[in-house]
Amino acid sequence: MSTIVECNNLSHSYGKSLALDDISLRIESGKIVGLFGPNGSGKTTLIKMLTGMIHDETGAVTICGNPVGEKSKAVVSYSPDRVAYRPDSKITGLLDMYELMYDDFDRNNAEDSLKELGIGTEEYVGKLSKGSAEKLQIILTMSRKAKFYILDEPINGVDPVSKENIIKIMLGNVPDKSSIMISTHQIEEIEQVLDEAIFIKEGKIVFHKSVDELREETGKSLLDAYKEEFR
């Protein structure tokens, strides 16, 4: 099995406050991994370092063997925690942009998925409901044939049917050997999809396990384990 993400002794601080404290982590190919922790625990900082939004001077993070940079960005598809597109952008315009920016973007696939969910390509982002905007963002993110997908809060604040749609878009599109990292507070909704879970507490990884092993060994759900850790 090949490694998608590797972090070795990664730390990061904002001024004097330590946001990530000596994190080491490995994500293998083909895994869907949940990233959990209270607000301010370091999830977003970790995501920013994986996507290169915060530069890692130490080279402690590699994705598919490359330090975070141009090569790694070409194989990472990222969906931020808020709608990433301007309200006055038309969906066709976004499709054009993705096609231009990413060699691995499958426009036909995106158009088919949008059609299936009743989102017209002539619509403007600003006119979409929260659920539809989130679906659009996940469709665009998952229509790239990337090696590593990072989805930050993909199902936060959307209705139950949209949640189901978003999870299906994700599962229907992820290439066999690629991995996904999902950061969310919605443990219950996502846990049956996950292979592994990571808990971050005050900048440290306090739990990284196969979710089925957790169930097998302790008879606990991931939600139970989370509550125990953070109560």
Binding site: G30, K31, I32, E164, I167, K168, L171, G172, V174, D176, Q192, V193, L194, D195
Partner: peptide, 11 residues
């Protein structure tokens, strides 16, 4: 079937 069940295709 993975999409129908809502589980990882690898599982």
């Amino acid at each position: 079937l993975a999409v129908e069940a809502a589980v990882n295709p690898n599982t």
